[in-house]
Amino acid sequence: MKIVADKPKMLTETPLHYCPGCTHGIVHRLVAEVLDELGKADNAIGVVPVGCSVFGYKYFRCDVFEAAHGRAPAVASAIRRVVNPDNMIFTYQGDGDLASIGMAETVHACTRGENITVIFINNGIYGMTGGQMAPTTMPGEKATTCIYGRDPKVNGNPVHMCEMLATLTGPAYIERVSCYDVPHVIKAKAAIKKAFQVQMAKKGLSFIEVVANCPTNYHQTPLESMQFVKEKGCAFYPLGVFKDITKEDK
């Protein structure tokens, strides 16, 4: 019998704890598939955040650091100094972690041009803690700390990370993707692959933002949540490449 689909070797047998319909599982799989394909899975080093993907160390079959909330890029920057330059280092962070409490670490790892890959899951909500407003919650969206919907006059405006980081000299590659349907999953995988290839070429920091869903905290069915990401999420956070120094090189 021919095996046509299998679990990536880089993922452990531990069942994922994510809610039904959540795209964290897809992105975990894409990271693992890409590192498997690049032959870089076994000695990769992951740095996982505080938030829904806090248990990332149970799922990735590689050395993993569980970092304090927001500090994954700082932890990864130090690991980069210590380990072999050929070890792939990635952080995997959510929006509260990366764009709120860890904004300084994110910006400064980017501006230093650390040779690491940052995977940023932007679902516009604090999932793990129960649906509070995130730095990327869109105007009008309800959260447990803005129950009438985010009002920029009261709650401030959401942050567009890719656009902001693209203004810096340090990052090498910045792309925003999504996983709301199969073609976009395939595109997301290509982006993540490109990000690790940039790291393998030691070109500097690569940053992949995934516009993601949170059916539980947005009170949506999995399908509704995908539709929401497609229609609202990707309209507010447009997909595309925001910086690519490999192109500029040519």
Binding site: V47, R71, A74, A78, R81, V82
Partner: peptide, 12 residues
């Protein structure tokens, strides 16, 4: 950041 960098380097 500095203390978390220390966490990274010591952990490595």
């Amino acid at each position: 950041s500095a203390i978390n960098m220390l966490y990274g380097a010591a952990g490595a």
